[in-house]
């Protein structure tokens, strides 16, 4: 296991300082800090996705299933049993992990596009169930998180800065888990699978078990973040939390734009994609229907065309460029 270099420590310290200072620059009830919170939440979500997709190269397009399970689990437990969302989050993680395990059994032997399509279908199945099982989920009408006296225990806050701190904490925790896994024996096994699954198998790596383990961890974290989303938005419906575009593909896209398989990638990606999306909405949505999505889409395509490995690859590329100039 390699240790962080002193430059890396300094960078982390600067980031932490900036992260603590930022909320004080915004109106605590304003729109800007909401976008920040969403960006942080999506950074954490993309990081969870990164554990199975970035480390094992199993590109899941069905992570909305775990996210939605998490949002509904804690919310229903709160509505029906008055259970604090903190315990609801644990229940969400258990169910999310279980769902990840069950979906892994038939899909983990699939590779590449086949795996992506199978998981895509799984997310959609959950959305359809959510819409049609009205008795449990409230159906397409959606479901509201009951308001209570704002407190840490109730996981509800008046001050947006508290949500900011919560989401920031989520990013730190999930990123730490990602880094620990990446540097562990499990990370090495995942890396072997990613680079050459056949070779990993013939040297004795239990590839199926390894992939399932990563998938379960990723599913648990994603479901927990679904609980945070529910507590942050107070209202959601199946199309939002189980959505392909709104959740599954967005998680994948953020990680890919930022740099798949890297720890900083999903964070960079989220702080690019989420504000960009909002900006495109503000500037173009009044002009013509769908124009904002078009502009947003074109910008994302440009990013991927210019640097397919994401923002994290731009640094090394610049370094090479300058090194070449020296000669």
């Amino acid at each position: 296991m390699s240790r962080l270099s002193s430059t890396q420590w300094i960078m982390i310290a600067v980031l932490v300082a900036v992260a603590i200072a930022i909320p004080f620059l915004f109106d605590p009830r304003g729109y800007g800090i909401r976008i920040l919170c969403l960006a942080l939440l999506f950074a954490a979500m993309a990081q969870s996705w990164n554990i199975v997709a970035g480390l094992a190269n199993q590109i899941s397009l069905g992570h909305a299933a775990f996210f939605g399970i998490g949002a509904y689990t804690s919310t229903l437990l709160l509505i029906h049993f008055g259970l604090t969302p903190w315990l609801g989050m644990i229940a969400a993680a258990v169910l999310g992990g279980l769902a990840a395990f069950l979906i892994s059994l038939p899909t983990m032997r699939l590779r590449g596009h086949y795996f992506a399509l199978a998981t895509l279908a799984f997310g959609e199945v959950m959305r359809v169930i959510g819409n049609s099982w009205g008795g449990l989920t409230g159906g397409p009408v959606g479901i509201s998180v009951p308001f209570s006296q704002p407190s840490l225990m109730a996981l509800q806050f008046k001050d947006m800065r508290a949500y900011y701190a919560l989401m920031l904490g989520a990013v730190v925790v999930v990123t730490a888990i990602f880094v620990v896994i990446k540097r562990s024996r499990l990370g090495y096994r995942l890396r072997a699978i990613k680079e050459n699954e056949d070779a990993a198998e013939v040297i004795g790596v239990d590839t199926t078990r390894t992939k399932i383990l990563a998938s379960v961890i990723s599913g648990m974290l994603t479901a927990s973040l679904g609980t945070l989303y529910a507590q942050f938005q107070f209202f959601f419906d199946p199309d939002t939390v189980f959505g392909i575009a709104s959740v599954s593909i967005r998680m994948a896209m953020i990680a890919i734009v930022g740099g798949i398989g890297t720890a900083a990638g999903p964070i960079l990606g989220a702080f690019f994609v989420i504000p960009l999306e909002e900006l495109a909405n503000q500037v173009f949505s009044a002009k013509a229907a769908g124009l904002s999505q078009l502009v947003f889409g074109v910008l994302l395509i440009l990013v991927i065309l210019i640097e397919p490995k994401g923002f994290m690859a731009i640094g090394p590329r610049l370094k090479r460029l300058f090194a070449r100039g020296d000669r």
């Binding site: 890396r191 072997a192 680079e195 050459n196 070779a199 990993a200 013939v202």
Partner: peptide
Amino acid sequence: AHVPEGRHVFPEM
């Protein structure tokens, strides 16, 4: 020990 067809190394290691 199996040496699979097609030079299966771990390319980035």
